[in-house]
Design a binder for these strands. Structure first.
Lengths: 334, 334
DNA sequence: GTGAAAGCGCTAACAG
DNA sequence: CTGTTAGCGCTTTCAC
């Protein structure tokens, strides 16, 4: 069995309380004693039992993270960020994957709530009221979503779309299609809205293409619609969809970008590797993960005082090879 | 504050012990009492504190999972499998990402050991002796690696390579290159060995191409070597590398598969979506994750009796569009 | 069947 | 500065 605080106390010839102090608040114990305790602890390979500690302090040192789909590179990157930040702050993280099912979010939330200090809900698919209903004991921070007053970390989706659209307009595109993502995705709504606003300002026609699953297949399915829409450029909900678009366009022999420009969103690793390399709106995934942990931890420490409850990170268009000057068209607004 | 067992006991007019029994060993308490307790528990939204329970039972209901890189789709899939199986067994899982650094594996291992019942070490990069040194308090199961007597779940890498090579041989290839992955990767060693054995049996020349990072970039870097080697086909350590190969080959105007056949390994989602679609050795990632949890749990329950300590899952070649009959060559073994 | 009491490993008052 | 005491929420003897 592993060494307990008692063993260390014994070995060092002090009380358990002293061991506890020597290890957690070193300045409260005399240097010589501290040294003795530390030596004993090292000797025995003592590592405090966090569960036992949590029982009394109310802090477990654990964070929970719930994501829709780990196999989506976007979320994988977020998880890496969260995990790294948590580790730096000496916390561990529970991971849970909902498989894009809104229903299990609440379940997982409740299941984890007791074992963690705080919970990060990444891109939750559940409706607002359902999220509000979960008044867990533990602090919840939303990521990639805003719902009421719940603290959140988001990225400036609307501005990213603005950059993408302005880029296309500058290239002469006057009719642009948007391939929408999941209806229940907050990011999707934000992106749509940002696009609509910018389209009005820029005098561009925006064609809205139904809702598609945020995956490669979604893009494949949407490609023909985009072509038929008469648009000369298409902006996809995310890179996976954009990659699907590229694939189907290629299969149909429609050259990108000469006949059709394509813009993605997220800047997942794959997008730099496609042929041609994808122009995309870069989202700071890792940083968002880190920021969320930061917000959560500050909330836990300060008890919601001081620090702002919302944090919004910037997005940045990355121009690669899938966008080009618009081809001459037949009947465009001009 | 959340409801405790005391609250429930009070509400139901019984003792804490009865509540505990009614919930954990229902057959030990009279049906009417049980009903009363269950009602009270539901009423108060009572959920037992697992940390407190763990303190006494010695079981936390938590599992730990350590992977080299979450952003590698292969590991993402494994994590999904692990997570799903754990959830089905009412366990939670801690995730940790080592960023491919062998050094942090032991650290993470020790950090998590106290908080979990069992640990899954996925594709560990640390050398055997270092792994052996970690005699954590918690049960450790290796995945994608074998080291001494440690329980493990692996896939039949060698057989997968055999299938790939036989396929190429059947297509007339007589000189095949292998782009190796990380030197410290056990899978890589297995794949190399399997390949060498099959090459001898099949009278094929095998060209070994240095060690490359198991990523897209690795493949990009290896492509020119593969071409220069005079091989008519190349097998990559994994799909990411194969995709990089495809990319560089395309950039150089070398048609795949007519001038060069390419085979990957793992069958990550992306490989079906590349152009042309990648021929690859499919590895049951999710299933491996599930199997590992199964093994771990059985070990925890049975205390290592009965069930075998090693489990090997089959691999399966999937022929898609990157392999073809070998082109006529100048000076081949023939 | 059920309750009382002890105790898992640890920290937080409170004395000294 | 350090030891003593109490108790976090839960399960488990051991009586009844």
């Amino acid at each position: 069995m592993a060494a307990t605080i008692r063993d260390v106390a014994h070995a060092a010839g002090v009380s358990q309380a002293t061991v506890s102090r020597a290890l957690s608040m070193p300045e409260l114990v005399r240097p010589t004693t501290r040294a003795r305790v530390e030596a004993a602890a090292r000797e025995l390979g003592y590592r405090p039992n966090r569960a036992a500690r949590g029982l009394i302090t109310g802090r477990t040192g654990n964070l929970g993270l719930i994501v829709p789909d780990l196999s989506n590179p976007f979320f994988a990157a977020v998880v890496k960020g969260v995990q790294a930040a948590a580790r730096a702050a000496d916390h561990s993280v529970f991971i849970a994957d909902t498989d894009e099912e809104a229903g299990v979010e609440a379940d997982l939330l409740r299941a984890l709530a007791k074992q963690v200090d705080g919970l990060i809900l990444c891109s939750p698919r559940a409706p607002d009221d359902e999220l509000a209903a979960v008044d867990s004991d533990s602090t919840i921070v939303l990521m990639n979503r805003r719902a009421g007053d719940r603290p959140s970390v988001t990225v400036d989706n609307a501005d990213g779309m603005r950059q993408a659209l302005e880029h296309l307009v500058a290239l002469g595109h006057r009719r642009v299609a948007f391939v929408a993502g999941p209806r229940t995705s907050w990011s999707n709504t934000q992106r749509e809205e940002g696009l609509h606003r910018s389209a009005e300002a820029g005098h561009v026609e925006l064609v809205h293409l139904g809702h598609f699953p945020p995956q490669f297949e979604g893009g494949v399915a949407a490609a023909d619609l985009a072509v038929a829409s008469g648009a000369t450029a298409v902006i996809a909900y995310n890179d996976l969809v954009a990659l699907g678009l590229l694939s189907r366009l290629g299969a149909r022999g429609i050259p990108v970008p000469s006949a059709m420009s394509v813009v993605g969103c997220d800047d997942i690793g794959m997008s730099a590797m496609s042929h041609p390399a994808l122009t995309t709106v870069s989202v700071p995934k890792r940083a968002a993960g880190r920021a969320t942990v930061g917000l959560l931890l500050s909330l836990l420490d300060a008890g919601a005082d001081g620090s702002p409850l919302h944090r919004e990170l910037p997005t940045q268009l990355i121009v690669r090879a899938t966008t080009e000057v618009a081809p001459p068209t037949k009947g465009t607004t001009r």
